[in-house]
Amino acid sequence: MKGLLLLALSTLFCWVSADIRCHSCYKVPVLGCVDRQSCLLEPNQQCLTTNVYLGKMWVFSNLRCGTPEEPCREAFNQTNHKLGLTYNTTCCRKDSCNSANPRPTSAVALVLTSLAGLGLWLLH
């Protein structure tokens, strides 16, 4: 009887844990998540969050599900020297673990982010 109960509980746990959802959006200052969705995590993959900074100022974040083609690879302080941007990517594997809550942003940061975006657009 204990074996049957254990089997039933483990089957239920596997069924419940199979449906892990991640947040999926581009998060920008003031607006928060743009194009907010959720994605169903594929087996053996992780949710990921990539935060992009210009110096110490947060510019935007990309939240999504990892895929076999683009799996999550944690990385800290990866720098694009041409654009002066720094990327930090974190991975997690729990339901909604890559939070989509907007970051608080000051008015000065908003102006600087806008100028940085304009500069990047002009470089492109």
Rank of each mutant, 00 (worst) to 15 (best):
102 P>M: 10
63 L>A: 12
113 T>G: 07
22 C>K: 10
106 S>P: 02
66 G>P: 03
79 T>F: 00
15 W>M: 08
44 N>T: 12
29 P>K: 04
105 T>H: 00
103 R>W: 12
71 P>M: 14
61 S>K: 00
11 T>Q: 14
59 V>F: 14
65 C>K: 03
35 D>S: 15
43 P>R: 03
72 C>S: 08
65 C>H: 02
102 P>E: 06
116 A>S: 10
58 W>N: 01
40 L>G: 05
62 N>L: 11
45 Q>C: 03
14 C>T: 10
83 L>K: 07
81 H>W: 08
50 T>P: 00
53 Y>V: 01
70 E>N: 15
4 L>R: 01
113 T>D: 10
45 Q>A: 01
5 L>K: 08
49 T>G: 09
104 P>D: 08
99 S>A: 08
102 P>G: 00
30 V>A: 10
53 Y>F: 15
33 C>N: 13
72 C>I: 06
51 N>M: 12
50 T>W: 00
36 R>M: 13
31 L>A: 14
32 G>C: 11
118 L>N: 02
51 N>W: 03
10 S>E: 07
108 V>N: 10
14 C>Q: 10
101 N>V: 13
119 G>R: 09
42 E>T: 05
46 Q>R: 12
20 I>E: 09
112 L>H: 09
79 T>Q: 08
120 L>I: 05
66 G>N: 05
69 E>L: 06
28 V>F: 13
19 D>I: 00
13 F>R: 02
7 L>H: 04
111 V>L: 15
52 V>C: 00
31 L>V: 09
106 S>F: 01
18 A>E: 08
115 L>D: 04
95 D>N: 15
84 G>K: 05
92 C>Q: 11
45 Q>E: 15
21 R>K: 13
78 Q>C: 04
14 C>A: 15
72 C>A: 10
5 L>G: 02
47 C>I: 07
91 C>W: 02
41 L>I: 04
16 V>W: 02
8 A>S: 12
9 L>D: 02
1 M>L: 04
41 L>H: 08
47 C>T: 04
45 Q>F: 07
114 S>T: 13
5 L>M: 13
69 E>P: 00
54 L>E: 12
82 K>P: 00
81 H>N: 14
21 R>W: 11
24 S>G: 06
52 V>F: 04
70 E>F: 07
49 T>F: 00
28 V>N: 04
27 K>T: 14
60 F>M: 13
45 Q>M: 15
104 P>H: 09
106 S>E: 02
106 S>Y: 05
66 G>Y: 01
